[in-house]
Design a binder for these strands. Structure first.
Length: 681
DNA sequence: ATCGAAGTA
C-alpha cells in the first residue's frame, strides 16, 4: 500500500477508501469498482507527486545573508521537530531563505509549503524574490495568493499568501491537508489573524503528525511562542543592521521653563530636531545630506508639520508625506532616487508595512493612533497613545539599515522606561464577534477553551457572544441558520446581516453596493486645501434624505464612466472628481466578491425600475439597529442606544437639519460624534 | 465642524 509517494491531501481520502474497501470485502459485497476508483486515485496522486519532485529547483542561498550560514542547523531542526521558532531581526534574510531550507529538508513535495505574510504586498514581493533566486517563473514552483489574485498552480511547491487566505482555507480543508509545512511569518505582529492561526495550528498539529510548523518572529517575546507550542526549539539568527544612537530630547514644557509661554508643540519639536541634525551633520564634515524619517500619528499632524518645515525654508530639502491613503504612485515617490535631503513624514505605515530606503535619522515623538474597542460604549475608537518600547525600538531600527543612524525621541528616558514593553495584541483591542462566529462555524467549541497564545478578557468574549446573539447569528451560544450564512460572507457580521435582510426584501442588488462601500474607507477625497472644490464635485451624488443612497448614485455615475473611458481617462476622471481611484477599484472588487458569496448562498438579484428606499433602509436597519438615534429637544444632538449622546458627522447631508430619527452606518470618535449616513422616517 | 493601518471564504 502506497503511503510515501502520494500527496498529503489525498492520503486521508485514500486511507478512508481503503477502510471502506476492506469492509466491503469482509461483508462479501462487490468491490471492483471501488478498487479501480481507489487505484486511479492513488495513481493520479503518485503521478502528481512525481511531477512535483521532478520540478524541484536547484537550491542555493544568498550567502551574504546571516541566516544562510545557519542553513544546516535550521534544516536539521525542521527535520527533528514538528514546530520550530525562528527569531531574527529584519535583514537576517529569514523570510526569503527559510522556504528554500524547507525544500531542502524534503518538504514541499507531498504537500505545499504555505508561507503567510501579514500584508498582500509582502506576499507578492517575497514570492517574486524567491522565484528569482530559484530561477523559476512566478506562479509555477513558487506562487502566491492574496485577496482578488491567485498565482499558483498544481505544481506549486512554495505558496506565499496573506494569513487571511490561510484562515479562509480552513473552511474547505479543516486539517490543512494541502500543506506539509506552514510558515507563519512576522508572528510578533500579533494580528487577530495570526493569533487565531497559532491557536488553530496548535490543535491541528495533534491530528497531523506529518505537518511541520515554523513560526518566525522578531526577537521580541519569542519564549511565548515556544511555550505555546510545547517548548518548541528557538533558533536565533542575527540581523544585519548598524548601531543606532538613541537620544532623548523631550519637548519643552511651560512648567519646566520660565521663559516659555506655552508648551512646545510636537510639530515645533520636530523642526528643532531636524535643524539640530542638519547642523550636527554639517559640523561633522559629512558631505552628504542624510534622509530623515519622522513618525507622526496622523494625516493632520503630517500636514501641519510639513507646513512648519516648509516655512523654515531648509535649503536643498524635500518634504514628503507618507500614509496608506496616498495612491500607489504617490507612495512610489519614496522609492525614487533623489538629490539633496529628504524628510519623510509618515504614519505608522513606515513602522512595519513599508520600508523607506536610505534613512539615516529618525525623529520619534512616541505617539500613534491605536484602535481600541470599548465594551462599555460598543465603539471602536482611535485614540492617540504612547507607543510601546518594542514599537519605539522598531522605529529606531528604521535608520540602521544602511549605515549608523541616530534616533531622536521627543520624550525622556524615564518616560520610555515606564512604557509597556509590547503593544497589546490586536485580540485584546478589538470586537471579537467575527472571530467567535468563525469559531462557532468551525465547531471549535467554547472560545474560553481555545488555545490562544493569550486569552482575551472574558468581558470581551461575552460582548462578542452578545453582539452575535443580537444579530440572530447565535441562539444559546449555538449557530443559527442566519449565523451559518453570515459565516460564509467575507465581511463584518453586521454588514452580512444587512445582506441577508436585503435578500428577503428583494433589494440585494442595491444593498450589496452600499454594504461594500461601508466595508472600505470612504472613496471620496477631501483635501485640506480644496475643501469647497471637492465638496462641489461630490454634491452631484447627494440625496436629501439618505447618506446611504449617495453610494448608489456615485456607483451608477462611476459605472457609466468606467464603461466609456480607458483606464487612464478613468484615473483622470477620479482625480477631477476627487475620488480615490484605488478605493473605487477596491469597492468594485469587494462588491464582486460579495455577490459571488451571495450567489453561493442562493441569493437572487432582482431588477427594479426604481429605488425602493424603504426596503433598502429596512435592510440596513437589520444590521444597524444599535446605531439608531432620536433627536433631543432644543438641541442638534441626538440620543442613541444606551442613553448615549451623539452628534451627526459634519460631512453628512443631515448635519444641518437633523431629522427626528437617524440610523448611522458607523459610530466613531472619542466624544462619540456619529458618522451618520442615515435616513429619516 | 472630519479618521490609522493592516486583512478575508
Amino acid at each position: 500500500m502506497p503511503t510515501h509517494a502520494v500527496m498529503t491531501r489525498d492520503r486521508h481520502l485514500i486511507h478512508q477508501k481503503q477502510g471502506q474497501l476492506r469492509q466491503r470485502q469482509k461483508d462479501g459485497l462487490p468491490f471492483d469498482r471501488m478498487q479501480s476508483e481507489l487505484n486511479e486515485l492513488i495513481e493520479k496522486s503518485e503521478t502528481l507527486h512525481q511531477a512535483r519532485l521532478s520540478r524541484l529547483p536547484k537550491i542555493t542561498y544568498d550567502e551574504s545573508l546571516p541566516v544562510a550560514a545557519r542553513a544546516d542547523e535550521i534544516i536539521k531542526a525542521i527535520q527533528e521537530n514538528q514546530v520550530v521558532i525562528i527569531a531574527g531581526e529584519t535583514g537576517s534574510g529569514k523570510t526569503t531563505q527559510l522556504p528554500k531550507m524547507c525544500l531542502q529538508a524534503g518538504r514541499g513535495i507531498a504537500g505545499l509549503i504555505g508561507h503567510t505574510q501579514p500584508r498582500r504586498i509582502a506576499a507578492r514581493s517575497v514570492a517574486e524574490r524567491i522565484s528569482d533566486e530559484l530561477q523559476v517563473n512566478l506562479g509555477e514552483q513558487v506562487g502566491f495568493q492574496v485577496r482578488f489574485s491567485d498565482e499558483s498552480n498544481e505544481e506549486t511547491l512554495i505558496k506565499l499568501m496573506t494569513d487571511g487566505i490561510l484562515l479562509a482555507e480552513i473552511q474547505q480543508d479543516k486539517r490543512l491537508y494541502k500543506y506539509d509545512t506552514i510558515i507563519i511569518d512576522e508572528a510578533h505582529e500579533r494580528s487577530l489573524n495570526i493569533d487565531f492561526l497559532l491557536g488553530y495550528l496548535k490543535q491541528v498539529l495533534a491530528a497531523r503528525p506529518d505537518l511541520k510548523v515554523i513560526v518566525t518572529s522578531a526577537t521580541i517575546d519569542v519564549e511565548r511562542f515556544s511555550q505555546h507550542f510545547e517548548n518548541a526549539p528557538i533558533i536565533e539568527v542575527s540581523g544585519r543592521t548598524y548601531p543606532v544612537e538613541i537620544r532623548y530630547q523631550p519637548l519643552l514644557s511651560k512648567s519646566d521653563s520660565e521663559e516659555l509661554d506655552e508648551d512646545q508643540s510636537m510639530e515645533q519639536g520636530v523642526l528643532d530636531a531636524v535643524e539640530l541634525l542638519i547642523a550636527e551633520e554639517r559640523q561633522s564634515g559629512y558631505r552628504g545630506a542624510g534622509d530623515i524619517l519622522v513618525f507622526l500619528p496622523g494625516e493632520r499632524e503630517i500636514r501641519e508639520t510639513a507646513e512648519i518645515l516648509r516655512r523654515a525654508e531648509l535649503r536643498g530639502t524635500e518634504v514628503l508625506p507618507l500614509y496608506a491613503r496616498l495612491s500607489a504612485s504617490e507612495q512610489q515617490r519614496i522609492f525614487k532616487s533623489h538629490s539633496g535631503r529628504r524628510i519623510v513624514l509618515s504614519t505608522n505605515v513606515a513602522e512595519t508595512s513599508l520600508t523607506v530606503p536610505g534613512i539615516r535619522y529618525v525623529i520619534d515623538p512616541g505617539l500613534a493612533r491605536i484602535s481600541r474597542y470599548s465594551v462599555r460604549s460598543k465603539v471602536q475608537q482611535l485614540p492617540i497613545e504612547k507607543i510601546s518600547q518594542a514599537s519605539a525600538n522598531q522605529r529606531a531600527g528604521r535608520c540602521g539599515r544602511v549605515a549608523d543612524g541616530i534616533c531622536i525621541r521627543l520624550y525622556d528616558e524615564n518616560d520610555f522606561n515606564n512604557r509597556p514593553e509590547f503593544t497589546d495584541p490586536e485580540i485584546f483591542r478589538t470586537n471579537l464577534a467575527s472571530v467567535i462566529l468563525q469559531m462557532a462555524n468551525l465547531k471549535l467549541g467554547a472560545v474560553e477553551k481555545f488555545p490562544f497564545v493569550e486569552m482575551p478578557e472574558k468581558r470581551m468574549i461575552n460582548d462578542g457572544y452578545r453582539a452575535l446573539t443580537e444579530l440572530g447569528a447565535l441562539h444559546k451560544d449555538r449557530l443559527t441558520p442566519i449565523g451559518r450564512q453570515l459565516a460564509k460572507l467575507p465581511i463584518d457580521p453586521k454588514l452580512g446581516r444587512i445582506l441577508i435582510a436585503a435578500e428577503q426584501h428583494s433589494v440585494l442588488k442595491e444593498v450589496a453596493i452600499i454594504v461594500s462601500a461601508l466595508s472600505i474607507p470612504d472613496p471620496r477625497e477631501r483635501p485640506q486645501d480644496k475643501k469647497t472644490q471637492s465638496d462641489q464635485a461630490h454634491a452631484v451624488d447627494k440625496d436629501e434624505d439618505s447618506d446611504f443612497a449617495v453610494f448608489l448614485n456615485l456607483w451608477e455615475r462611476f459605472e457609466e464612466q468606467r464603461q466609456a473611458l480607458s483606464q487612464n481617462q478613468l484615473r483622470q476622471y477620479c482625480r477631477k472628481q476627487f475620488l480615490n481611484f484605488m478605493r473605487m477599484r477596491e469597492w468594485r472588487d469587494i462588491h464582486r466578491q460579495i455577490m459571488i458569496a451571495c450567489k453561493q448562498l442562493g441569493f437572487k438579484e432582482v431588477q427594479h425600475e426604481e429605488r425602493h428606499y424603504e426596503a433598502i433602509h429596512r435592510s440596513l436597519l437589520a444590521g444597524l439597529f444599535t446605531h439608531v438615534a432620536n433627536k433631543m429637544e432644543d438641541s442638534k444632538d441626538m440620543l442613541g442606544c444606551r442613553s448615549r449622546k451623539l452628534s451627526i458627522f459634519p460631512g453628512s447631508m443631515l448635519f444641518k437639519k437633523p431629522p427626528q430619527w437617524i440610523m448611522a452606518a458607523e459610530l466613531s470618535g472619542n466624544q462619540q460624534a456619529v458618522r451618520a449616513r442615515c435616513r429619516s422616517y
